[in-house]
Design a protein around this nucleic acid. Structure first.
Ligand SMILES: [Mn+2]
Ligand SMILES: [Mn+2]
Ligand SMILES: [Zn+2]
Ligand SMILES: [Zn+2]
Lengths: 141, 141
DNA sequence: GATTAAATTGAAATTCTTTTTCAGAATAGT
DNA sequence: ACTATTCTGAAAAAGAATTTCAATTTAATC
């Protein structure tokens, strides 16, 4: 955990930025929270521990993390962008339209087929998102 | 084309709505345009032929079409929601991050695998979106 | 440790899309 | 025609994302 933040701050310093106490705190809270957080979500968490940190810094920190490849943003269609750590393996999402819970899955065969589709269309893949919307196990009860 | 609009207006009337000249015009333009249009896009097209029609009516008409299942909305991550006809077969999208062009594909095996994933997770699928982002053939030149 | 240049911060302002409100116009039924 | 309800367009509001800017913090230099 600390080593990850070290790595991030190092990358930042190497690109002429400075490492600030505030940003470090936001990053810590982000990775310790886990899950799929909106800026607002993370801001609330941060505020609890560090009441002086502002919304914009949380917003900017998430942007930085995304740019450096340590966070991924996803749009689950509920109005606000969500962010999750990019330290774990790539995966796609099952999104419950009843409770909003987000489940994760990884299906290698789908990934392979995507590459096939891309090749057929002479398309160079940079990224993809597969969102499956529906009703989760809990909400079916 | 006219028969589709007839069907839509019929459905509307059956649910206590009225059929208006204005909405009919917007629907006509929408289906005749084709493609993946934002509200703004369609508004521009409508404005050209019918200068008196307002933005909000275009917005509302697209909403109605979506509710009735005649249009589908998709978010390609460029800030505004896009709409396309739902009269054609389901498909997914290849989105060029250079030129913004949107290509379509349908891969039955991916669909099958999605159902498999859902079953494994006791998840009842209602919908899904698979967006592949990258560089299209044209833009690779 | 003081000095300085550059980056960071938080609040406020701005931008941009989406959505709601509301008074007047159009529509459908009597 | 009369009436009730829906529809329309402009304007306002809502909401998220982003920018601006003065004050503060940081990193490097003296
Ligand atoms: Mn995830
Ligand atoms: Mn399409
Ligand atoms: Zn659920
Ligand atoms: Zn392209």
């Amino acid at each position: 955990m600390d080593e990850i933040i070290e790595r991030i701050e190092k990358e930042l310093r190497e690109s002429g930025k400075k490492s600030s106490r505030t940003r470090r705190k936001v990053i810590e809270v982000f990775f310790s929270c886990g899950g799929h957080l909106s800026v607002e979500d993370l801001y609330r968490e941060v505020k609890q521990r560090y009441p002086d940190i502002g919304y914009v810094t949380v917003y900017r920190t998430l942007k930085v993390l995304e740019e450096l490849g340590y966070a991924t943003s996803l749009d689950v269609g509920d109005g606000s962008t969500r962010f999750e750590t990019a330290l774990r393996q790539h995966h796609d999402h099952l999104i419950c339209t009843v409770c909003g819970r987000i489940y994760e899955f990884f299906e290698p065969e789908i990934e392979v087929l995507q590459n096939l589709v891309a090749r057929k269309n002479d398309f160079r893949i940079l990224d993809h998102t597969l969102h499956i919307f529906g009703i989760c196990k809990e909400c079916q009860k």
